[in-house]
Measured scan of single mutants.
Amino acid sequence: MGMPNRKYADGEVVMGRWPGSVLYYEVQVTSYDDASHLYTVKYKDGTELALKESDIRLQS
């Protein structure tokens, strides 16, 4: 078993793309699913969504 190939840690605050949009919002990573390679993130309004790594970026 190798290390999970994840870029962002639980609790890390990053920018997540809103689905169907080009806009990124501040989100907190809450979990990562090794099987689906999706991150569960929480937006400031409390919305929780699963995002692909390509829809997440570090805060500038």
Rank of each mutant, 00 (worst) to 15 (best):
L51Q: 02
E26Q: 12
W18V: 08
G11E: 03
D45T: 05
D55S: 05
M15Q: 08
A35Q: 13
L58R: 15
M1K: 12
K7G: 03
D55Q: 07
M3I: 13
Q59G: 12
M3Y: 14
G16R: 01
D34C: 09
V22E: 14
Q28N: 05
Q59H: 14
T40E: 03
L49C: 09
R17M: 06
V22D: 14
V13D: 04
I56S: 01
V13T: 11
K44H: 11
V14K: 01
S54I: 09
G11A: 04
Y43Q: 07
L58Y: 13
A50V: 14
I56T: 02
P19F: 06
E12R: 05
D55N: 05
D33H: 05
V29Q: 00
Q59S: 13
R17C: 03
V13M: 13
Q59R: 14
W18F: 11
K42E: 06
Y43C: 13
M15V: 05
S21F: 04
M3G: 15
L51R: 01
G11W: 05
P4K: 08
H37L: 12
S31G: 14
Q59P: 15
V27I: 05
S21K: 07
T40I: 12
Y25I: 11
K7Q: 07
P4V: 12
L51M: 09
G2F: 05
P4F: 09
A9E: 09
G11N: 06
H37T: 09
V22W: 13
V14P: 01
S36Q: 10
V41H: 01
K44I: 10
G20L: 06
G46N: 06
A35K: 13
L49F: 15
I56W: 01
Y24E: 05
L49Q: 07
D34I: 09
A50L: 15
S31A: 12
Q59T: 13
D10P: 08
K52S: 12
Y8F: 12
Y24D: 02
T47F: 07
V22H: 14
A35M: 13
T47N: 05
D34T: 09
G16D: 00
R57P: 02
Y24N: 01
G20W: 06
A50M: 14
P19A: 06
D34G: 09
L51K: 00
L58I: 13
N5P: 15
T30S: 09
G46Y: 03
T40Y: 13
D10N: 11
Q28T: 15
T40N: 08
Y39S: 00
Q59V: 14
M3L: 13
Q59Y: 14
Q28Y: 10
S31K: 08
L58P: 15
L38W: 07
E26A: 10
Y8E: 01
V14I: 04
L38K: 07
E48I: 15
S36D: 06
L38Y: 11
E53G: 05
E48C: 12
D33P: 00
